[in-house]
Structure formats: C-alpha cells, structure tokens
Amino acid sequence: MRTELFSRPGDPDRPNEDFASVGLPACGQGGSLVVLDGVTPPRGDTGCSHTVPWFTARLGGALTELTVSLPDVPLVDALSRAIARTAETHSATCDLSHPRTPQATVVLARWSPETVEYLVLSDSALLAESPDGTVTPLLDDRLARLPRAALATEALADATLRNREGGFFTAAADPSVAARAVTGVLPRGEVTALAALTDGAARWVERFREGDWADCFRLVRKEGPRALVDRVRELERERAARGLAGRGKTHDDATVVYVEP
C-alpha cells in the first residue's frame, strides 16, 4: 500500500485549519482516509469560544476512529456520530446554533477487499482512478452551482444559504447534515488509487485551470502531494504579483492525501 499526505497552511503565522488522516486497521485489510477543511469565520462573534483547528482536530479524530473501528457502520452514520460527539464536548459552553459555529467540509473514503465507500460534503474533492486510468471526480458541487450574487456577502450567505435547503451544507453541530452528503459505493476492483484535496489544493484545477482532474491526479501520483501544493503556491504568488489575486484569500490552507489501497 502507498499512502502520502501533505498539508500546508495558507499563512505560516496562523494555525492550519485543515485536518487529514489515513487509518489502517490492525487486521491489515482495508483502511480509511479523512480530510477536513475548516471554514474560516469572518471577524466577530461566532457563538463559540473554540477555534476552527480545535474543532477540526476533534471531528477529524472522531471520524478516524469511527471509520476504522466500526467498518460495518455506513459513512453517513459515522459522520453523524462524529458531529454529535464533537458537539457534545462544547454544547454546554457555546452557542452551537450560531451560523458560524466552527464547521468544516468533509471527504471520507473507506476501502475493504470488496468495496470502496465515499462521502463528500461541500467543496473539497475526492478523485478515484480506475484500472484503465480513468479518473472520476466525486464532488459535492452545490456551492459552485449557486449564483455569485447569492454569495455577495458572508452575512447574506449565512442568512440564506449556509446549511439551508437550496444552499450548501458543512459539518458543524447538527448531526442530521450528514444525510446531505454525496455518497456512494464502488467495487474494490474498479479503484486503483484515491486522492483527496481541500479546495486550497484544488485551485490548480478550479481556479488556475492548469489542467483537468485527471491531469491533477497524475501530477499527484507521479510527483506526490507536496508537488501539487508547491505549484499552487507558485501560481498564487505569480497572480498576486500581477494584481490578479481575485476574490478570497491569496493563499489558503492546502491539503492532499494520496492512497493506493
């Protein structure tokens, strides 16, 4: 089995809000990957005294444990349990109903000798390669399909779209959101490798148009996750120097996990 993981913060002076892990059960068969992209809140009150890295560490830790220790529990249920467990740790001290309570996008994959299960919630990406080299992106594209005008301000998006029907969903404090994820099961023989990317790394495809998902996957497989993140950073610096940074952060936390089960 080949597993590689690389993560780099968008700002070296700020904690990385991403989380990534690969879990391998003691029996030696199967495994799981977990990738979370913590959602950076706007300045101001979030109803919570805890940081986004605090949240992603706990949610990610719970998911790593549950996806390995409970192989017969569907990934939707594992995510629901992990959200509930994490919420319980700070429900007595924080307002978890606040729209900006700590939250994250989620990518999960779990493989056995028979199947590969997957779950994607919000705008991180999971790529699956088949034996003939075809790369299939497994995406939750609800956020990308929303009109830009609906996302004009964070306050507007929070009030009308965030974790609301017709909008987009992230893992926060409501366990029922797990049922909103994009999920599926593939025959194990149809998957030779997987790559999971937070949107900070997926910029190579989605923002900079350096290639398609298959090109991105081949880059990660050939040169490793760090090479993709390095190239994204180079492109970000080049665009910033030309005054083309655009909306959002110049640099975002970027995480890539590559697995050949």
Rank of each mutant, 00 (worst) to 15 (best):
E88D: 15
P12I: 11
A196V: 06
L139T: 13
T3Y: 13
V22K: 03
G10R: 11
S49N: 14
S122M: 07
E223W: 12
V52G: 10
V73A: 08
R2I: 06
A173M: 02
D132V: 14
L228Q: 10
R247I: 02
T105V: 05
T86S: 13
V34W: 00
S91C: 10
G166R: 09
A109I: 11
S112I: 05
T51F: 01
A26N: 04
D13I: 04
W54F: 13
L108S: 06
T86N: 02
V39Y: 01
V116M: 01
S21Y: 00
D141W: 12
P74I: 08
A62V: 07
F55A: 12
L161N: 04
V205Q: 00
R207E: 04
L96P: 05
P74Y: 01
L36W: 00
L66D: 00
R110C: 01
L96T: 09
C27Y: 05
R226C: 00
W111C: 02
G167Y: 13
E238S: 15
R148N: 02
D123C: 04
E206L: 15
E223T: 15
R81M: 10
L36D: 08
A179M: 06
A196P: 05
T153A: 05
E165H: 15
V229R: 06
A227I: 11
T198H: 04
E154N: 08
V35G: 03
S7N: 01
A181K: 08
R142Q: 05
R14L: 11
